[in-house]
């Protein structure tokens, strides 16, 4: 066999092995469960706020009347079950049902079923509220979608607590390949989001001349804190604009290597908290950080959240090899066993 053929065959085998490891290696659901809790809380809050003016937005005489929204959506395949409910009583009934679903998702009760129902509900408000939506809603729906894929109720949930109670002893960590698929999908989706957010900024002169950040901070309607004093710090404004663009553009590449991942994730915190605190978009800033959680190793999540009621005993396995913490632990274990 020629060396070229051998090379191609080995390369193909490496790609297949890498693909299988990337997607199908069973993983601890701790991080996915943390994302479930945070997303559940955000969905609950988002829809509680819709509830403050439910019929004012979606009623027959509401702001977003059917003829306007449906005309705008035209031949789009966007859909919503809210179209079937017009009267205030009917709207309130389905709204309360949605709130119950989001609450159940948060605490992890009948998680496999309610994760699907939560996605359908979130999608329906997204399809109905065209004109009053923003980034928060896009990320809410995205995370709810991927929570349907993985077994997010296998940790930090009432489901797991009830199963342990029934068994009469703490349960081991349940690693699954579907939890890994869900985490991978969130990770890739986050990369697509930041890549396009960065690329779109390249077309704006203000991101090149460094004034863009001021144009956001100096916008009175966005301001939740008076940031006008920052006009005295033009170079700081320039730096923040440039860092934002570079960070978004290179996130897709730098979030994967073990060396750069912590730096990229740490930079996400001031960026999104800045949007949250200074530009009044607390919900959006927080939900973007929740999306970034997908890159946090399950071991770290467990260390932060603490031992779950279902228990993870000493010697429990680490996460898959693509997680930096998992790799480091395996190396330590290997070197110990070699000694």
């Amino acid at each position: 066999m020629s060396s070229a053929t051998t090379y191609v065959r080995d390369w193909g085998a490496d790609v297949a092995a890498g693909w299988n490891r990337f997607w199908f290696e069973p993983t601890d659901p701790a991080t996915l469960a943390a994302i479930r809790i945070c997303t559940g809380v955000m969905l609950l809050y988002t829809h509680l706020v819709w509830g403050l003016e439910l019929t004012t937005f979606f009623g027959p005489d509401g702001w977003l009347q059917a003829d306007a929204v449906r005309f705008l959506q035209g031949e789009s395949y966007a859909w919503s079950y809210l179209w079937w409910f017009e009267s205030p009583a009917a709207l309130w009934t389905v709204h309360i049902a949605a709130l119950v679903v989001f609450a159940m998702l948060t605490v992890g009760l009948y998680t496999r079923v309610v994760s699907i129902l939560a996605f359908i509900a979130a999608l329906s408000y997204f399809g109905r509220a065209t004109g009053a939506l923003f980034g928060l809603d896009q990320i809410n729906v995205m995370l709810a979608m991927y929570l349907c894929v993985g077994r997010s109720g296998d940790a930090f949930s009432l489901d797991r607590w009830r199963a342990a109670r029934k068994a009469g002893h703490p349960l081991p960590v349940r690693r699954s390949w579907s939890s890994n698929v869900a985490i991978r999908l969130i990770q890739l989706h986050m990369c697509v989001i930041y890549m396009f957010a960065g690329m779109a900024k390249l077309t704006g002169p203000a991101w090149w001349d460094g004034n863009a950040m001021w144009m956001a901070f100096g916008n009175l309607e966005y301001q939740s804190l008076d940031m006008t004093w920052m006009a005295d710090w033009p170079r700081l404004m320039n730096l923040m604009a440039h860092v934002t663009v570079f960070w978004e553009l290179f996130y897709v590449a730098l979030v994967w290597p073990r060396l750069t991942r912590p730096i990229v994730l740490l930079l996400a915190i001031p960026l999104h908290l800045g949007i949250a605190i200074c530009l009044g978009m607390i919900t959006f800033g927080v939900i973007m950080l929740v999306g970034n959680l997908a890159f946090v190793a399950p071991e770290l999540t467990r260390a932060v959240v603490g031992r779950a009621p279902t228990g993870q005993g000493r010697g429990a396995p680490s996460d898959g090899p693509t997680h930096p913490a998992g790799k480091a632990k395996r190396r330590r274990d290997k070197s110990r066993s070699a000694k």
Binding site: F24, P26, P170, L171, V173, R175, W177, G313, R314
Partner: peptide, 14 residues
């Protein structure tokens, strides 16, 4: 001590 607490349950790979 119950060993099931230490040994993880694994679903997959498929």
């Amino acid at each position: 001590m119950n060993n099931t607490q230490d040994k993880p349950e694994t679903i997959g790979p498929p």
